[in-house]
Every structure is written in C-alpha cells, then in structure tokens.
Design a protein around this nucleic acid. Structure first.
Lengths: 152, 152
DNA sequence: TCTGAAAATAAAGGGCT
DNA sequence: AGCCCTTTATTTTCAGA
C-alpha cells in the first residue's frame, strides 16, 4: 500500500475524529487530496467503519471470559443453531472456529459470574457441546483495534 | 444509565460518523442537548475514543492466532519484560492475564505462518515460558466492538 | 494529482424557557 | 433539561496548474 495511505490509516486507527486538515498536514498534503484518499480507503473497504469505543467498566462489564468448546455434532444444523445463537447474544463479542483440539473459541463480556452463568445456560440450551471450558481475564495487559500496517 | 444516553451510545458504537442531528432525531431530542450528552459521555470516559476499523484481509492479516502461555517465573522482572514486549509488538492486539491453568492469553494477527513464527521467536527471545501453545482461527463467526448496554 | 478558494454541512456555544 | 438561533469549524466540491 502507498506509504501516504498507510500514514493516514495509522492516524484514523488511533483517532477517527481527527480533522482532515490536521491529517493532511501530518502526511504532507493539502486537505483535498488527503480527503480523497480517505474516501478511497472507505470505498475500497480498507476502512470498514468508524465506531465509538466504550469503556467496559463504565458499562458494568468487568468480567471477560474466554470459552473453548467442542461440538457434539459436526453437521450443518448444529452450526446454524450455534452461529445464530452467538449473533443474538450481545455479551458474546467474538467467536472463532479454531484449528486443533477445540472447535470454537468465544469471548464474552459480562458484569459478573452470575451473568456469565446466564450466558452459559443460554448457550447450552441452544446447541449441544461435548466440551465447554472457560477461563477468566484477571487483568488486561493490552487491547487494541489498531492493526499493524507493515504488511499492507 | 439514562435510556437516552444508552440509545445515543448504541448508535455511536455502530457508526461514530453519524451526524449529531441524525442521532438527535433518532432519540427524540434536538441537536444541542444531544450534542451535550455526547460530550458528557466523552468527558466521563464512557466513550473512550473514536476509531476507524480497518479490514484485516485488506491489510494482509489473514491469520489470527490465539496463544496460551505459562510463565517460567512468577516475579516482577519477568512480568515487566513480558508486558513491555507485548506493547512493542504491533501484531499482538490483545493480552490477558488469566485465571486457571494458563497464565496469559494473547491474540495475534499476522499475514501467515511464517510471520507468526517471527512473532513467536520474538516473544520467546524476550521472556521465558514454561508452556506455549497456539491455535489458529479458521473462520471468524462474530467479531464486534459493540458492547452490550443492558447492564449500564 | 496536486493546490487554493468557495460552497455546503455539521459542530459548538449563547441565551432563553 | 431542553429548544432555537448564531458563530465557528470542518467537510465537500469546483476551477485551475
């Protein structure tokens, strides 16, 4: 990717409220071409969206759980039920189908253990698991939406 | 939290580029009080920041690894080395200190296995681990920065 | 593709209910 | 708290090099 585009993207990944004029100055352009590059990045989908990041603690979401599960049945119907369920449960913020021992990993944010248990019950009510293990985050050392631009 | 503030936050979590006038209309306010509520949410830190989310695929970051590690030494010096290292490595996007069996879990985004291996080598060069296991995401079923507002 | 300026739109603030 | 109205800033478009 063009180095100027990368520089623009780096700024927007940190703070998408930065005025175009300020970004332009940073990357050594005037506002118009800088603005056009940003538009292009959005059209191409390199920039997917602009969002506000909320503070989990302020929203009473102090407990983060990482769940590893194995499915009881490897078939289409099970997957559909599972995929639909995780979409519908807002406390589930991330789900991956994994290689190796476990089939899926989930990240869940909730106020406390009692609420975690409710999400757990909701999950096992929807789809059958042959294994279900969870661990909890005691402390967040790093958490960022900034992706490395070195390979683009 | 005030229901109107929640409604505003819900919109901004989805799309922080939404004009204040439009948000105001959605929540049944005029622009000024809506704008003031947004400012307040920012000042209070409920809204931490506004960012642009980039497409990992477009940045050549197709491989996501979840790493579980155990530390060889439970002491201050080890932790400092480890914490510093993960901050410096941009491919590491998330790090938690965990309860239970493993000590830390990391999320890493890279172009491919070769690059994953470079991050691995960089990590083990910095701090000693008694255990280091990684699994890889085959497919992302859900991934969102939107936090549930039901508990706030 | 850039610059520079103009036009359109949105954000920020003042004064009042 | 909220609304209306004004000012300021920012975004977006346009003419020209």
């Amino acid at each position: 990717m063009d180095p100027t585009d990368k520089a623009i993207l780096a700024i927007l990944q940190r703070d998408s409220a930065t005025p175009v004029s300020e970004i332009a100055e940073s990357v050594g352009l005037s506002a118009t071409p800088c603005w056009r590059r940003i538009k292009k990045l959005e059209e191409e989908g390199v920039i997917q969206r602009r969002v506000a990041l909320a503070d989990p603690a302020a929203l009473n979401l102090s407990l983060t759980a990482i769940i590893s599960v194995k499915t009881a049945q490897h078939n289409e119907a099970w997957l559909k039920r599972f995929a639909d369920a995780v979409q519908r449960i807002p406390e589930i913020v991330e789900v991956h189908r994994m290689s190796g021992e476990v089939d899926y990993m989930l990240k869940v944010v909730v106020p406390d253990m009692a609420h975690y248990d409710r999400v757990y019950k909701r999950l096992i009510a929807t789809a059958e698991f042959s294994d279900f293990t969870s661990t909890f985050s005691m402390e967040v050392l790093k958490q960022t939406t900034e992706l490395p631009l070195d390979y683009a």
